[in-house]
Write a protein that binds this DNA or RNA. Structure first.
Lengths: 334, 334
DNA sequence: TCATCAAGGTCAAACGTTTGACTACCTCCC
DNA sequence: GGGAGGTAGTCAAACGTTTGACCTTGATGA
C-alpha cells in the first residue's frame, strides 16, 4: 500500500453520497436520517479506504482539539507515572489524547508558546505552575485548567488527595505498635502536600496524647531525605519511628539510618507516603501508604472535560487509601 | 482581561495591512519585502492583541503538525524518563511539542486512532510497537517513525545504543576484580537489548578466557530479577559475580541475594546496566553502567525532523557511557 | 386535489492560515 | 515616452471538516 491521504470527499464519492452524510455517519450524528443500507455503504467505504478524519480540519471547524495537557515537574519521579496512567485512560475514554509535558524539557514558559492557541482543551497542573503567570495566561486563552494535588494560593481550582488521612494512617500504625517518640521527615516548605501531611501527623499525634517529635524538611528526593534523616537522628532524644512524607525521601532516609549504624526496624521504624513496586525490594521492605494517584489523574481529566472556564473546583478525592505494612516498621526497642 | 480569540484578521486590521503580511511577518518569511516601520506596526499589533497562531488552521494548511510522538511501554520505568527529557528538549528546539504516550493508557492500537491523521509529524517507538501492524499503518499514513533502542526484525529504521560496549564495561570491571565465575541475569528473550547485552557479556568473557557462566532471563522488573537471581544461585557451582542486564531487575536480584543469606559484595558482586539516582541509596549502593539515554531521545527527535519517509536509518549512537563504581562490586571471596 | 409531513438526504458557508500569483506605484535609463 | 525592474504590498484559493438550512420524493390526510 502506498501512502495516501484519504479525505471525506474520497469516501463520499466511493459511497455515492454527500460529504455531509459521511461526516454524520462517522460522528454518529443522531439528527441524521439514513437508510441502514446507505450507512453500510458509507462504513464499507470508510473501511476500504482506511479513512481517518484529519484532526486539524476538525479542530479548526469545531474549535475543540480533543487533546488534554498534563504538566509535571519531572518524569523521573515515579509517583507521577500513576497520575499519568489514570489521566491517559480517562482521556482515551473521552476520545482524546493526553500530552504530558515536563518542566525538564522546555520550562513552563515555553510550554504555552508551543501549545499555541487551540492545541489543547484543558490543562492539568500536577505540582508545577504555581506562582508563574501561567494560569492567568490560560484564563486569557479560555483554556480550562486544574491543579492536581496542589492548591493554588489564589484561585480555587484544584483536586487534592486526603493527605491528612494518609498521615493519620501512618502515624496511627506507629502508635499502635507502641511508638511514642515519632519524628516527621516532612516535605519541602513551600509544598502544599507537605503542609497537609504535616497537619495530619500533628493531629494524629495530638489525638494519641503525644507531643510532636522532631521535624526536618526535605525535598522529595533521596538526597534530601538522607540529609534530613541525619538531622533527625542527631536530636537530643532521638525518635524510635519516623513518618516520612514521601517515598523517594524515605529511600534516602533509610540509607542515612544505616549510615548511622542503626537497624531498621529494630531500632527505628520508617513509614512513608506513596507506594512503589520497588518498596517491596528494599532492605528491609518499606511500609508505605498507598494513595489513589491513578484515580487522581482520571478525575482531573474528567473534570476538565466538563467544567466551564469560570467554575470553581475544590475537591478532596476520596479514593481507596491503604497502609501497606512491610518490614520497615515494628515495635520500638524496650 | 477577558478570554479572547485573536486571529490574523484582527491583527491585520489593527496594523492596517493584509492578513498575508501579518502571516509573513510572524513566520519570518524571507521573501517578504516590507518597510521596517510597517513591520513594527505589525509586531506591535501582535503584541497588543496577544496574538497566537491557531495551530489547527496552520496544520490544516501546511499539513505539518509541529508535534512529535514518543511511545513507551510504561511511565513507571524511570529509564524512559531520561529518553523523554532528551526528546522533549530536542522537540522544543525545533519549535515542536512532544507528546508521550504509554501502552498502559490506551494500548498501541487505540493510540493511532486517537492520533488520527495529521496529528503528529513523526513517531518514536521506544521499546514498544514491535510485531504489531503499527509500523505498516504509520507508513501508510506517511508518518515517519524510528525505533529507539530496539531494532525491528523487518525494517531497518532505528537508533540504538552500544549495549555490547556497556556489557563489556561491566564484565571487564568484574574480571579486573578477579572474578572468574560470572553469571548473566539477562533481559527477556524477545528483547533486542537483551540480546545485545548478552552478546557483549559473552564476547567479554571469551576475551578474558573465561567460559560463559550460568544465565537466566528475566523481564525488566524487580520481581523478574528476584526470580532469576534465585535460579542463578541454585546453580551447581554458583557465581561470585552477576552482570545484570537492567537496573530494575538488579534491585530485585539484590533482594534475592539477601534472601539467600549471602552478602553483597563480600560473597557476590552485582553490576547492572542503567543508572538511577536511587542506585546510590541502595544497600549496598549499586554499581551501574550509565547509558546516554537523554542523548538517545534527542537524537531520535532530530532524526525524525529530517528524514524522508523511506530513508533507512541504522545508527548506533556513541554517547558517553561509563561505569559508575559503587559498593556492590568487590573482589571475590578467596 | 392540494397542503402537510417525514424520510433521506444535499448544499454551501464557515473555521484561520499559508502562499503563489498578481498589482500599483515609483525610479531609472535609453 | 516607454519599457524594465524593484519595492511594498494585496488577492484569493486552497487545506478537510462540520452543521444549519434547504431540497426532493413519496405517502398521508382532509
Amino acid at each position: 500500500m502506498k501512502p495516501v491521504r484519504v479525505t471525506l470527499a474520497d469516501v463520499a464519492s466511493m459511497a455515492k453520497v454527500d460529504r455531509a452524510v459521511v461526516s454524520r455517519v462517522v460522528n454518529n450524528d443522531p439528527t441524521l436520517n439514513i437508510r441502514p443500507e446507505t450507512r453500510e455503504r458509507v462504513l464499507l467505504a470508510v473501511d476500504r479506504l482506511g479513512y481517518r478524519p484529519n484532526v486539524a480540519a476538525r479542530s479548526l471547524r469545531t474549535s475543540r482539539a480533543h487533546m488534554f495537557g498534563l504538566f509535571i515537574p519531572d518524569f523521573a519521579n515515579p509517583v507521577y507515572a500513576e497520575i499519568i496512567k489514570g489521566a491517559e485512560a480517562a482521556a482515551a475514554a473521552l476520545g482524546c489524547v493526553l500530552v504530558t509535558g515536563s518542566a525538564t524539557g522546555t520550562g513552563l514558559g515555553g510550554y504555552m508558546d508551543l501549545l499555541g492557541t487551540g492545541r489543547i482543551d484543558g490543562l492539568l497542573l500536577a505540582g508545577a505552575g504555581e506562582g508563574t503567570g501561567l494560569t492567568a495566561e490560560l484564563d486569557r486563552a479560555a483554556v480550562p485548567w486544574i491543579m492536581l494535588n496542589r492548591r493554588s494560593p489564589s484561585v480555587q481550582r484544584y483536586v487534592i488527595l486526603d493527605d491528612e488521612r494518609a498521615a493519620r494512617l501512618a502515624v496511627d500504625h506507629l502508635v499502635g505498635q507502641g511508638h511514642r517518640r515519632i519524628a516527621h521527615l516532612a516535605g519541602p516548605d513551600g509544598a502544599d502536600t507537605a503542609q497537609r501531611r504535616f497537619a495530619g501527623y500533628s493531629a494524629a499525634m495530638r489525638e494519641a496524647g503525644l507531643p510532636d517529635g522532631p521535624i526536618a524538611a526535605a525535598d522529595y528526593t533521596p538526597a534530601g531525605g538522607a540529609a534530613a534523616m541525619t538531622e533527625l537522628l542527631a536530636a537530643p532524644d532521638p525518635p524510635t519511628a519516623v513518618f516520612v512524607a514521601n517515598v523517594a525521601s524515605a529511600i534516602g532516609a533509610m540509607d542515612a539510618v544505616r549510615g548511622a549504624g542503626l537497624a531498621i526496624p529494630r531500632q527505628i521504624s520508617i513509614v512513608a507516603v506513596h507506594d512503589l513496586e520497588l518498596a517491596s525490594y528494599l532492605a528491609p521492605p518499606l511500609t508505605t501508604v498507598r494513595m489513589p494517584l491513578e484515580e487522581l489523574g482520571r478525575r482531573g481529566v474528567s473534570l476538565l472535560g466538563s467544567i466551564k472556564p469560570d467554575d470553581a473546583i475544590e475537591e478532596v478525592l476520596d479514593g481507596p487509601m491503604n497502609l501497606i505494612t512491610r518490614g520497615s516498621t515494628a515495635a520500638p526497642p524496650r
